[in-house]
Amino acid sequence: MNSNLKPQERIRQLLRHYPRERHHLINFLHLVQAEFGYLPEEVVELLSEHFSVSPAEIFGVATFYSSFRIDRPAEHEIQVCQGTACHVRGAEAILEEFSRQLDKYYGEQNWSGKVSLKKVNCLGCCAISPVAMVDGLLESRVTPAKVKAIVRKLSKNDSPESQRERDEQE
């Protein structure tokens, strides 16, 4: 978040010069999500006023599209591509390995607030499959070994000490 304002005030501020035509709605939702990392609940009412459509409509759009989220995101985001080329090159195993390594480095069931692990439909980099997007950066030709390195790096940045302990144990 690059502002100390409350969501309500910040959204009002963003809306001030925004056109009122309905077709700008999705672009505006992108803007809000870029700002907060998710769509705070205040969005529904404010946009309903601004674009003159019912709150239910706004909520409907916000929840229909998979790239919008209405809950606070985790600190890190891992998206594992499940496109066809990735699928035939073992994307499912990569997803499982991520989950396994997250269990290992963050403790079982303990990473859900810190890391979000999601499937994504084709990132369009099929020639270097399988791919994953880690905090917005694309990782190509992911292997189980690479998964381990990625998760290790993430957890290392999170808590340097606990990492050292784990490394010593290995």
Binding site: R22, I26, V61, F64
Partner: peptide, 25 residues
């Protein structure tokens, strides 16, 4: 330029229109 928001069905032309209009696809 309109950015999509992650919905395969919006590639279908009538759904695409709905999405450009700012509605559910």
């Amino acid at each position: 330029i309109i950015r999509g928001a992650g919905a395969f069905v919006s590639g279908e032309e009538t759904a695409l229109i709905a999405s450009v209009e700012g509605r559910r696809a």
